[in-house]
C-alpha cells in the first residue's frame, strides 16, 4: 500500500546513496563541460580545419541520443580492449554530449558582446588579456548564466540514463526496489522527490549567480 512509512524509512537511505552518485556525476559533468565547452567554442571560432572539426563535433553530439553515445563508449570501447567502468563511460558520454551544448551557449554569449565593446576597451589602451578579463568575459558570464542553469538541470536529469549501463544511481536503485517490493508508488515518489530537490537546488544556485553577476541591460 502507498505511503508506508516503514518502507519509506528503509527506502530513503538507499535512494540517498544513489543520489550521491547522481550528484557526483552531475557535478563532474558540469565542471568538465564548463572547461571543455569553452575550449570547443574557441576552437569553433577559428578558421580552417580546427573550426570545422569543432563545428562537426557539436553537430554530431547534439544530433545523436545520449543513450547511443553511452552504449558506444561502454560496450564499444570494451570491445576495443580499453574498457571503462559504467561510471566512467557515463561521465565520458555526458561530457561529450553536453560539451556540445555548452559550447553553443558560450558561442551565444561571446557573440552577444558587441564589437564596439572591444573597440572601447582597445581605445583605452587595453591589451588582449585585460580586454577579455575586464570587458568581455564579465559580460559573457552574465549572459550565459540562465542557459547554463537550464543546461545543468538537464544534466542532472540526463544522469538517470547511466542506469542503462548499470551504474547504481537514483534511477537504477529505484528500479531494483520496484522489482523487489510491491511498493511502486512509494519508490516513484521517493525518486521523483529527490530529483526535484536536486533540480530545484540547481535552479536556486543559478538564481543566486544571476543576482551576483547580471546587470541592467
Amino acid at each position: 500500500m502507498p505511503f508506508d512509512l516503514n518502507f519509506l524509512a528503509r527506502l530513503l537511505p538507499a535512494l540517498l546513496e544513489g543520489a550521491e552518485v547522481t550528484v557526483e556525476l552531475a557535478v563532474l559533468t558540469i565542471a568538465i563541460c564548463l572547461v571543455w565547452g569553452f575550449v570547443v567554442a574557441l576552437a569553433q571560432a577559428t578558421r580552417g580545419p580546427l573550426g570545422w572539426l569543432a563545428g562537426g563535433y557539436i553537430q554530431i553530439v547534439r544530433n545523436t541520443p545520449l543513450l547511443i553515445q553511452m552504449y558506444l563508449v561502454y560496450f564499444g570501447f570494451s570491445m576495443g580492449g580499453f574498457g571503462l567502468s559504467g561510471f566512467a563511460s557515463g561521465l565520458l558520454a555526458l561530457c561529450m554530449q553536453n560539451g556540445g551544448y555548452v559550447a553553443e551557449i558560450y558561442r551565444g554569449g561571446l557573440q552577444s558582446v558587441s564589437p564596439r565593446q572591444y573597440e572601447a576597451g582597445r581605445a583605452l589602451g587595453m591589451r588582449r588579456w585585460t580586454l577579455y578579463t575586464t570587458v568581455v568575459l564579465p559580460q559573457v558570464i552574465a549572459r550565459i548564466i540562465p542557459p547554463m542553469t537550464n543546461q545543468s538541470i538537464s544534466i542532472i536529469k540526463d544522469t538517470s540514463q547511466v542506469a542503462a549501463i548499470a551504474v547504481m544511481e537514483i534511477m537504477k536503485i529505484s528500479e531494483v526496489w520496484v522489482e523487489t517490493s510491491a511498493n511502486t508508488y512509494d519508490v516513484f515518489l521517493g525518486a521523483a522527490l529527490i530529483y526535484l530537490a536536486l533540480t530545484s537546488a540547481a535552479s536556486l544556485a543559478g538564481r543566486l549567480c544571476e543576482r551576483r553577476f547580471t546587470f541592467a541591460q
Binding site: S160, M171, S174, Y195, S200
Partner: peptide
C-alpha cells in the same frame, strides 16, 4: 521539468 523523462517512463 524537474523529473527525468526516464523516471516518468519507467514508472
Amino acid at each position: 521539468r524537474g523529473i527525468p523523462l526516464l523516471v516518468l517512463l519507467t514508472f
